[in-house]
C-alpha cells in the first residue's frame, strides 16, 4: 500500500508545471524515504531529477518499493481539477496498475477522486557521479528566468562565463548580441535577492537556450536557483522545493564540432 498526502495541492501543481514541458511521461519511484523521479527529455539532452522526502509529507506510507509510470500530461490534467488549498492524497495498492489522486476541500465538504492508469515505462536510469563543481552560482530564480527569456531572442545558445568577479550570460546571432553581467552581491539585505558565487576555477560553457527556458518553468517553486558548472560536464540547475526536496535539471553542454 502506498499513500502520500500533502495539505496543499499548489506545490504538486507547480512541480508538474516544472516538468511537463520536458517530459511526456516518467516513473515515480516510491520508497519509505520518499518519491524520486528521474527522466531524460525525448532527445536525451537533459535529465530531470526530482526528490521529495517522505518526512515532509503530511502523511506518507510506503509498505513496498513501488515504481509508478505516469503520463505527466494526464497527471497535470488531473491536478488542474484540484483547488490550490485542497488536500491531495496519492494512493496505490501494491502491484496495482492504477493510481488514485484524492482531493479534499478545506471544509471537508467536497471530496473527489481521479483514477489514472499506470504505464509500463522502460526507462534508463542514469548514475549521476558526485562532482565538485568549479563554479556554483546562487541567484534569484526570477532573474535567471528573465535572462534566459531575453537572451533566447538573439541565439539558440547561450554562453555562461563564471569568474570570481561575477557571472556573464551572452548570446549572439544574426540580429546582434546580448550580454548580461551579474556581480556578486556585496550587501545582502534579503537573502532571496542575493547573487552568490563560489568559484574554484573560472568556467565558460555553452548551452541551448530552449532547455534553459524549459527549466525556468520551475521558477514558482523557489526564490533562488543554483547553477553548478565545471568544464566539459553537464550544468546542474537546482530549485529547492521548500522543505520537501528539490528538482535538479542536468543539461549537456554544446561542444566544438
Amino acid at each position: 500500500m502506498f499513500e502520500a498526502r500533502l495539505m496543499n495541492a499548489t506545490i504538486l501543481k507547480k512541480i508538474l508545471d516544472a516538468v511537463k514541458d520536458l517530459l511526456n511521461e516518467g516513473t515515480f519511484d516510491c520508497s519509505d524515504s520518499g518519491i524520486q523521479l528521474q527522466a531524460m527529455d525525448n532527445s536525451h539532452v537533459s535529465l530531470v531529477s526530482l526528490t521529495l522526502r517522505s518526512d515532509s509529507f503530511d502523511k506518507f506510507r510506503c509498505d513496498r518499493n513501488l515504481s509508478m509510470g505516469m503520463n505527466l500530461g494526464t497527471m497535470a490534467k488531473i491536478l488542474k481539477c484540484a483547488n490550490n488549498d485542497d488536500t491531495v492524497t496519492i494512493k496505490a495498492q501494491d502491484n496495482a496498475d492504477t493510481v488514485t489522486f484524492m482531493f479534499e476541500s478545506q471544509n471537508h465538504e467536497k471530496v473527489s477522486d481521479y483514477e489514472m492508469k499506470l504505464m509500463n515505462l522502460d526507462q534508463e536510469h542514469l548514475g549521476i557521479p558526485d562532482t565538485d563543481y568549479s563554479c556554483v552560482v546562487r541567484m534569484p530564480s526570477m532573474e535567471f528566468a528573465r535572462i534566459c527569456r531575453d537572451l533566447a531572442q538573439f541565439s539558440e545558445s547561450m554562453v555562461i562565463c563564471c569568474t570570481k568577479e561575477g557571472v556573464k550570460f551572452s548570446a549572439s546571432g544574426d540580429l546582434g548580441s546580448a550580454n548580461v553581467k551579474l556581480a556578486q552581491t556585496s550587501n545582502v539585505d534579503k537573502e532571496e535577492e542575493a547573487v552568490i558565487i563560489e568559484m574554484q576555477e573560472p568556467v565558460t560553457l555553452t548551452f541551448a537556450c530552449r532547455y534553459l527556458n524549459a527549466f525556468t518553468k520551475a521558477t514558482p517553486l523557489c526564490n533562488q536557483v543554483q547553477l553548478s558548472m565545471s568544464a566539459d560536464v553537464p550544468l546542474v540547475v537546482e530549485y529547492r522545493i521548500s522543505d520537501l526536496g528539490h528538482i535538479r535539471y542536468y543539461l549537456a553542454p554544446k561542444i566544438e564540432e
Partner: peptide
C-alpha cells in the same frame, strides 16, 4: 557548436 547528449556523461545504471 554541436549539442552533446546527457548519456555521454552519465552512465546507465
Amino acid at each position: 557548436m554541436a549539442q552533446s547528449s546527457i548519456t555521454s556523461y552519465f552512465s546507465t545504471r
